[in-house]
Every structure is written in structure tokens, then in C-alpha cells.
Computed example of a mutant assay.
Amino acid sequence: MIESFKKIDFSATPCDFNFKLILIGHTGVGKTNILTKFCDNQFSENFQITIGVEYKTQIVEINDKKVELRIWDTAGQERYQSMTKLYYRSSNGVFIVYDITNPESFNKLDYWIKELKSQEQANAMFMIIGNKCDLEDKRKISKEKGEKFAKENDVLFMETSAKDGTNIEEAFEVLTKEILSVSQKKNNLTNSIILSGPNQNQNPNSNRKTKSGCC
């Protein structure tokens, strides 16, 4: 079955799911442009440092399910990291972004993964993004190297360009579908347990041990 994925306008109809996504990574890798390209179809050549966090909401539809994505863009500068750590918690999905023209940003990937796991985000769905793939003539990190790192860490991977839009919607689509799949499985398991309940023919006290004597 082919799944559909499309961005839709806000409406009064409640969403079926709400997912919290965060963008983290070294400063200057293009996290803000990825966010604004996905939500607003905008791109800015002017680099502006994110101070603390920025936030946008986008509703998408996947096979008749409405999903509200609450997306947080975090600052990459070290001086803001103690504050942005607060926003890691309870995240359903994380984009860890590096710049394919900046080896330092790629070398920081280990740090970000360890940082997330130390904040008890090991159960969140991770995707590594190699951004700025439109700058092929300035590339310093091969796609194969990015794919290898992602495979070694058992996370998703994609290269994107916030400037020309390459794989921006696809990255959000893949991560959202993975999170939705896990969420639906959990809901089905929970419902199954609730519906099955205890054996109605069983005496609820039958498994209890009865004490004899006075003490």
C-alpha cells in the first residue's frame, strides 16, 4: 500500500497524533533554513544565529491520519546548549544536521548522539541530515561517509538542500512515517491488552495465597 504524505492547512478538526520534532547540530549547518523551507517554503542566504530555540507547527496528512508536527529549531552554539537541552525531552523525532562542506560539523555527530541519549532520548527516532548538498563543488564529506556513520549508529540518513528544496519534505515524510508506525503499534498493543483484560471466568482471588494462623 502506497502511503500519501501532504502538508495541509490548519483546521478546527483535531489531529489524530501530535509529534514533537527537534533540529540539532553544529552552528551554521542550516537548521533554521530546513525548518522554514519545510513550513514556509522560504530560504534566506543571510546567516542568522538562532538564540535559544525557534518553533513552528505544521500539520500533515498520512493516509487520512492528521498529524501535528511541533518542530523546534535549537541553537548550535555551545553557550546556548545548556538551555536547549531542556527541549530535547519528550521528543518523538530528532534531526541531527551537519554541513557536507564543513568537516567539523560532521565530527560533532558523535557528541550529539551521546548528548541525546544522556537526556533519555534513546527511544526517539533519529535521522542524520547532511545539508547543503547543492554545494557539490565545495563538498568535504562524501555521501557514503554519512551513510556509513548512520548505519553504524542504526539511524536514518538523508542529504538535503534547504536552498533548492532537495529532500526537505522527504526527510520530514520519512521520519514522521517511522514515528507514526511505532506509535500505531504501541496503541494497538495497548488496546489489545485493554480489550483482552482479565479472564472473565477466573475468580480474581483464585491466585492469591491464603494465610493460615493468626500471624
Rank of each mutant, 00 (worst) to 15 (best):
A162Q: 07
S161F: 00
K140A: 12
E159H: 02
E159L: 02
Y111W: 14
I168Q: 00
T166P: 00
I100K: 02
Y111K: 15
N123K: 13
F157W: 09
L109D: 03
K143G: 05
D99M: 06
F126W: 05
R139I: 04
M125D: 10
M127S: 05
L116S: 01
F126K: 05
I168R: 00
D137E: 15
K138R: 15
E144D: 14
N153S: 10
A124L: 08
Y98R: 04
E144H: 08
I128D: 00
Y98E: 01
K143P: 02
K138V: 05
T166L: 00
S161V: 01
I128G: 00
K117C: 11
N153G: 09
G165W: 04
N123A: 13
K143Y: 08
P103N: 12
D164Y: 06
Q119G: 07
K143A: 06
K163S: 04
E120A: 13
F126G: 01
E104T: 12
T160N: 05
G130C: 03
K145L: 13
L116W: 04
W112G: 03
F126Y: 13
I129G: 00
N153V: 08
E104S: 14
Y111E: 13
N107W: 07
D164M: 10
A150E: 04
Y98I: 06
F149L: 13
K114F: 09
A122Y: 11
A124Q: 08
S105W: 02
F126N: 02
F149V: 05
K132G: 02
